[in-house]
Computed example of a mutant assay.
Amino acid sequence: MYKIAVVGDYDSIYGFATLGLDTFPVTAPKEAGEKLNQLAGNGYGIIYITEVLAAEIRQEIEKYQDQVMPAIILIPGVNGNTGEGIENVKKSVEQAVGSDILFSNN
């Protein structure tokens, strides 16, 4: 069974521990990139990461983009939603089904 991790600033991720997810608070982009690589190599199938932090380590995340695992999913932090997480999910769905499921012909 694969493990699930949440990476980001402490205030944004501490609540995920109550759901049984492994939380990894980080304070700097370099630390976040190292943690992401460590988790990817240690059996984590899903890694949630805050949008703001993901923007700072985009190159590290892109290394895993074409791999099946780990799935890296962006989530909003305590400071709000940047929209990047939703955009990434939208792109993944478009790639999987071949069309934009959110497009409307009104």
Rank of each mutant, 00 (worst) to 15 (best):
M1N: 08
M1D: 09
M1Q: 11
Y2G: 07
Y2C: 07
K3T: 11
K3G: 05
I4P: 03
A5R: 01
V6T: 10
V7L: 15
G8W: 08
D9R: 12
D9A: 06
D9N: 12
Y10S: 11
Y10V: 09
D11H: 10
S12A: 12
S12D: 06
Y14T: 14
F16P: 09
L19S: 15
G20K: 09
G20H: 11
D22M: 10
D22Y: 08
T23G: 04
T23S: 03
T23V: 15
T23L: 05
V26P: 01
V26I: 08
A28V: 04
K30Y: 06
E31K: 07
A32I: 02
A32Q: 09
G33M: 03
G33K: 01
E34Q: 14
L36G: 04
L39I: 09
L39H: 08
L39D: 06
A40G: 10
G41V: 11
G41W: 14
N42P: 05
G43L: 12
G43S: 06
G43I: 14
Y44C: 05
Y44V: 04
G45E: 09
Y48D: 10
Y48I: 06
I49E: 00
T50G: 11
E51T: 10
A54N: 00
A54K: 00
E56K: 10
E56V: 01
I57V: 14
Q59M: 07
Q59S: 13
Q59T: 07
Q59E: 15
Q59C: 03
E60W: 02
I61N: 01
I61V: 15
E62R: 01
E62C: 00
E62V: 00
K63F: 08
K63Y: 08
Y64W: 12
Y64K: 01
Q65W: 00
Q65K: 02
Q65R: 12
Q65H: 05
D66H: 13
Q67N: 11
V68H: 08
M69G: 03
A71Y: 03
A71K: 07
I72Y: 01
I73S: 04
I73A: 05
I73V: 15
L74D: 01
L74A: 12
L74H: 03
I75M: 05
P76L: 05
V78W: 12
N79W: 12
N79V: 02
G80N: 06
N81G: 02
N81H: 01
T82D: 04
G83R: 02
G85L: 01
E87R: 13
N88P: 04
V89W: 14
V89R: 13
V89S: 06
K90G: 06
K90H: 15
K90E: 14
K90Y: 13
K91V: 03
K91C: 06
S92G: 14
V93F: 08
V97G: 09
G98C: 08
G98S: 07
G98N: 06
S99R: 14
I101C: 09
I101M: 14
L102T: 15
N105V: 00
N105F: 00
N106G: 13
